[in-house]
Amino acid sequence: MQLLCLTTLDATLKKKDIKDIYRVHRRNNTKKAHIITEMSSTILKTYFLKQAKAYNNKQKEKLCAKHLGFTKNEYEPPIYVSEQLTAKGARLYFLARDLAKSQDYKLCWTSYGRIYHVRKNKNSPVIVIKNESHVNSLMRKE
């Protein structure tokens, strides 16, 4: 059994932990294609996402291929690790991020396919964004 030790992320993946890996090409070929990795379980996927986010929050230099031991290059572009959302979810996440920027909200993130939004201070309640009209109503509130 082959192991992929991701010591940077404090994670170990076995070959059986990965169901499939494939590229999704974008319409405009100016950007590189996304690499989709399907994990064998939701628990493993959630753990891997959590570890990648924790690394990026703690470190000044964002996660890249050299941190995972794939290359030794001095400069590597960052690796963005995120959930794959449906087209509707991706649109909603885009609108939520736009709302966060325009209304100075502190955080906007996804988890289990849901779009979340946190207000400016730590004591504010977490708002689950459910649809576009909810985003519009939040835009009008402020």
Rank of each mutant, 00 (worst) to 15 (best):
T8G: 08
T8C: 11
L9C: 08
D10Q: 15
D10V: 10
A11T: 03
A11N: 01
T12K: 15
T12W: 07
T12S: 06
L13Y: 08
K14T: 14
K14W: 02
K15D: 15
K16C: 13
D17C: 02
D17Q: 10
I18H: 07
K19Y: 05
D20A: 07
D20Q: 13
I21E: 01
I21C: 07
I21Q: 12
I21A: 13
I21V: 15
Y22M: 03
Y22R: 09
Y22W: 04
R23Q: 08
R23F: 05
V24L: 06
R26P: 06
R27M: 07
N28M: 08
N28G: 14
N28T: 11
N29L: 15
N29G: 13
N29E: 15
N29R: 14
T30M: 14
T30P: 03
K31W: 03
K32N: 11
K32Y: 14
K32F: 08
A33P: 05
A33Y: 05
H34G: 00
I36P: 00
I36C: 06
I36V: 15
I36D: 02
E38V: 13
E38C: 09
M39R: 04
S40T: 10
S40D: 13
S41D: 00
I43R: 05
L44D: 00
L44P: 01
K45F: 03
T46M: 08
T46S: 14
T46C: 04
Y47V: 03
F48E: 09
L49E: 02
L49K: 06
L49T: 02
Q51R: 15
Q51N: 14
Q51W: 08
Q51L: 07
A52Y: 13
K53A: 15
A54E: 08
Y55P: 08
Y55K: 04
N56F: 07
N56K: 07
N56P: 01
N57F: 10
K58S: 09
K58C: 07
K60T: 12
E61M: 13
E61P: 03
K62G: 00
A65V: 04
K66E: 05
H67C: 02
H67R: 00
